[in-house]
């Protein structure tokens, strides 16, 4: 490669690296703020703030969903130690069901109960036809 092209190539590489560095530092600076929601462990440990509107995500614990007309109560868990109760009044998305991942938006009360204004169903990356749904998921 002739010297002019080599010089240009280094300049272009410097441009690409510089761009990656700037964006990388910005994302590093934003850090956890890029995360969409708090995990159940962060809710129970007190890491999530109580006084403002936040989002939390987790799996709906099997057997925890109770409904009285539009008022729903359910427990979100990380399938390990942490779990917390959510209250929501309104229409739940079609994919809302026990064992499914959901994201709730609202306020965490001082009593540890999360009062949600909005519930979003989080779909996982598994797809299968209905007749296979009873079988064990492919690992």
């Amino acid at each position: 490669m002739n010297p002019t092209r080599k010089r240009r190539l280094y300049l272009v590489l410097a441009l690409a690296l510089g761009s990656a560095l700037v964006i990388g530092l910005v994302l590093l600076g934003l850090g956890k703020n890029v995360n969409m929601f708090y995990l159940p462990g962060q809710i129970t440990s007190g890491e999530a703030p109580h006084d403002r509107n936040i989002r939390a995500g987790g799996m709906v614990l099997e057997g925890s969903w109770q409904r009285r007309q539009l008022l729903s109560t359910f427990v979100l868990t990380d399938r390990q130690a942490a779990q917390f109760t959510v209250q929501y009044e309104g229409i739940l998305p079609d994919l809302f069901r026990e064992g499914q991942g959901v994201i709730v938006e609202g306020r965490l009360g001082d009593d540890g109960v999360f009062v949600a204004r909005e519930v979003l169903a989080k779909h996982d990356e598994n797809y299968m036809p209905p007749e296979l749904a009873g079988m064990e998921r492919p690992q």
């Binding site: 079609d94 994919l95 909005e118 519930v119 169903a121 989080k122």
Partner: peptide, 10 residues
């Protein structure tokens, strides 16, 4: 229909 929202800025 799946999530319950068209768009999420976050």
């Amino acid at each position: 229909p799946t999530w319950g929202t068209w768009w999420e800025w976050t």
